[in-house]
Amino acid sequence: MRLLVSELTHRYEDLTVLDGIDLTLAEGEILAVIGPSGCGKSTLLGIAGGIVAPTAGSVRVEGAVPDGCLNPITFIFQDFALLPWRTVEDNIALVLEHHRLSAAERRERTETGLRRMGLWDFRKALPKQLSGGMRQRVGIARALAVRPAMLLLDEPLSALDAQTRELLMDDFLGLWRREKTTALYVTHNLDEALRLADRVCVLSRRPGRIRELVTIEEPRERRQEPSAQAHLAEVRERLWHLMKAEAQMADREIARA
């Protein structure tokens, strides 16, 4: 599924958060969005996912949707957004309950998600009994249960420790190898962007405008290899240079205000 963002502007009362964003996500592409705090990354994701109404401009989707897709554009949240009163399996089942599925299919989708994310033994546990990484796995299993065509990920690893982040990045890579889902991935972390994305969109300080779109030439599956490191270091340096300049200017503006 392709995502087409055109002339997108968003204002919260007098505050312009996003200004004139034009962006296209190709089928199966992973686009990371980075930028200083408050530049409108999460707002962009919210608008793309239809949970924030834009002030101006449009967001359209087109293209193939997988068989059995129940929710073409699906979020994975930073804070996991699990219902604390439901068990792991009931949290996954929540997003299937309002669809006309047979009991067997509902069970099959829930079980597949549980097994794929290594949660089978924890299916009866409540979220409070799980670690942060396990909770995010529940969030991913819930997203997989609806067989999405596009994933919108809002800093999905930022609440986790470094070790868990590494493990979940491997999970994401495995997922994308299998499903080839288009993804818009908002992050603060350059390493996540370099590891997972095909392109990186750098937003300017508020109001967020596209400062630059950087393509990572190295194929995703080779990025851990030593031969890829020189290129990745170069891209990293460029991204950091852009980010740093924007963050410093944003800081100066806050200090002046």
Partner: peptide, 15 residues
Amino acid sequence: NLIRMAQSFGLPWGA
């Protein structure tokens, strides 16, 4: 955030 999650998965109002 829980309500937004439910809306993002298309849960109807009653649900």
